[in-house]
């Protein structure tokens, strides 16, 4: 049965925060030690559940940021003002704290390093997280599959993983990254601020003839716009996988 998952239902497990690493002013990466964790696929997510002393319990979904690694998983959490879960994970959770977690979840929005087709990733804000897992998984697998990322952020200070992406473009052969700065472009940047549009998708993406696999992740409106633009540009809707954030995030 090599290469086939052992079929089992998901259940909650307890993870211990090993590290809390700031990414931007409002986002942190939490590395979690999970003794029962075996592996995951790039693009999958986990559900995190917090329970108050009075028994009130609430949960949210977070994309996995890391490449597969037994016993360890990383999530990157963007603080949502008025959220019920993210402010705790961003501002309070510290090494040694325990969290309840369920996963890995999802077989739809996933990329496998064995897939030969070129890949286009389009991220809006913290929608970068599952797409970063794909770039990291590609490098960890030694894949040469051409992969291009278009990353839409408000300004340069909002870009999560910016340093690592710069390094990967230099070191990981066949990875390209382009940015769309929607409000404030960095000083000396050769371009104009603005949203992802057909021209940016054309310049930073792949022609439809190459039939790339496409993954789009971000807020609902962003994903809707980008998916429509890609279909207008001739991409097969069946090759476009999307993951939208909810209205509350949290």
């Amino acid at each position: 049965m090599a290469g086939t998952a052992v079929l089992r239902r998901l259940s909650w497990q307890v993870g211990t925060v090993a590290e809390s690493r700031p990414e931007t002013a409002t986002a942190v990466t939490l590395a979690l030690d999970l003794p029962e964790w075996t592996t995951h696929l790039a693009g999958q997510h986990v559900d995190v559940r917090l329970t108050a002393p009075d028994g009130y319990s609430t949960q949210r979904s977070y994309s996995i940021a890391s490449a597969p690694s037994p016993g360890r998983v990383e999530i990157t959490v963007q603080r949502v003002e008025d959220g019920e879960v993210s402010p705790y994970l961003v501002d309070v959770a510290r090494p040694g704290d325990e969290l309840e977690l369920r996963g890995p979840i999802g077989g739809y929005f996933v990329w496998r390093a064995a897939d030969p087709e070129p890949v286009l990733l389009v991220a809006g804000g913290s929608g970068i997280v599952p797409l970063m897992a794909m770039a990291r998984t590609r490098a960890a697998a030694g894949s040469r599959t051409p992969m291009r990322l278009i990353y839409s952020v408000r300004g340069p200070e909002d870009a999560i993983y910016a340093d690592e992406l710069r390094r990967r473009v230099r070191d990981d052969h066949g990875l390209d990254v382009s940015y769309a700065y929607t409000r404030r472009a960095p000083d000396g940047w050769n371009g104009v601020a603005g949203r992802v549009d057909a021209a940016r998708l054309g310049a930073g993406g792949w022609p439809a003839d190459l039939a790339p696999r496409i993954f789009v992740c971000g807020p609902t409106g962003f994903v809707e716009t980008v998916a429509d633009l890609l279909v207008d540009a001739g991409h097969d809707p069946g090759r476009i996988r999307t993951e939208r954030f909810g209205p509350t995030g949290g």
Binding site: H45, I105, Y108, T220, R244, G246, P247
Partner: peptide
């Protein structure tokens, strides 16, 4: 507003 079917993965993963 709505999210993608992926969001059901956790709840259904406890059943299937």
């Amino acid at each position: 507003t709505w999210v993608d079917g992926n969001a059901l993965g956790g709840a259904l993963g406890e059943i299937f």
